[in-house]
């Protein structure tokens, strides 16, 4: 049975009708303890079928170490959205509920290659010389979460140094526990600094500066 109903499929088709660059949805699955790997693959395939600019590629993380390494992926399940180049857009877990919007926003970012950010933020991100990983912890029932997640995607598109990993907290409980995540959205920068709630761009920029200082 399809995961996406006809109505949603039509909306997705409409929304993704004018994508400029092709986007690969690279799904990495894991043979161990992956509750929703089957569904994630199915979802990626159903979304890919909505536009001729989209393709889904499925890899077992253990059997495709080269592909995983090339994208610096060490955990599964994950969907990497790769456009004309790899902008560093990742979604860990199944993007259901409100997070489906995050997936689509990621696809759009990967295709357009343009961030929706103010000039000041873009200028700062373009000047980065050190790598920055933004991990945004979310739950599918959180209406505030896509805002935090999509901001991270924008920042990743704005700079080759930034990778944005959106993490579904219930599927990656160990990771969430490691950072004491008990509320979402939560953005963790390079595993050090944390920002609770959906923060505006200047607040995230300040936190990045603090981590890199």
């Amino acid at each position: 049975m399809a995961l996406l109903n006809n109505e949603i499929v039509q909306q997705v088709q409409q929304r993704l009708a004018d994508l400029p660059d092709p986007v690969k949805l690279m799904v990495f699955t894991s043979p161990d303890h992956c509750d929703y790997c089957k569904e994630i693959v199915q979802l990626a395939e159903e979304v890919a079928a909505t536009s001729d600019k989209l393709t889904a590629e499925v890899y077992d993380i253990r059997q495709a170490p080269e592909q995983a390494q090339a994208l610096n992926i060490t955990m599964a399940p994950v969907i990497a959205m790769v456009g004309a180049k790899d902008y560093g857009l990742r979604y860990y877990g199944i993007p259901s509920g409100h997070e489906f919007s995050t997936l689509l926003a990621g696809i759009e970012r990967a295709s357009y290659g343009k961030p929706d950010l103010d000039e000041q933020t873009k200028t700062y991100l373009a000047s980065l010389s050190q790598p920055v990983t933004l991990q945004v912890f979310v739950t599918p029932t959180c209406p505030y979460c896509p805002r935090g997640a999509i901001l991270a995607y924008d920042m990743a598109v704005a700079s080759d140094k930034v990778v944005a990993e959106v993490v579904e907290s219930m599927e990656f409980q160990d990771l969430a526990m490691q950072f004491n995540v008990m509320g979402v959205p939560l953005t963790v920068i390079n595993g050090k600094e944390r920002i609770e709630g959906a923060a505006p761009p200047p607040m995230v920029v300040d936190a990045i500066k603090k981590v890199l200082a």
């Binding site: 949603i8 909306q11 409100h98 489906f100 759009e108």
Partner: peptide, 14 residues
């Protein structure tokens, strides 16, 4: 068991 909520988003659909 999953539902998928689609909301609009600012950049692509200006």
């Amino acid at each position: 068991m999953f539902d998928f909520t689609l909301t609009e988003e600012s950049s692509a659909t200006a």
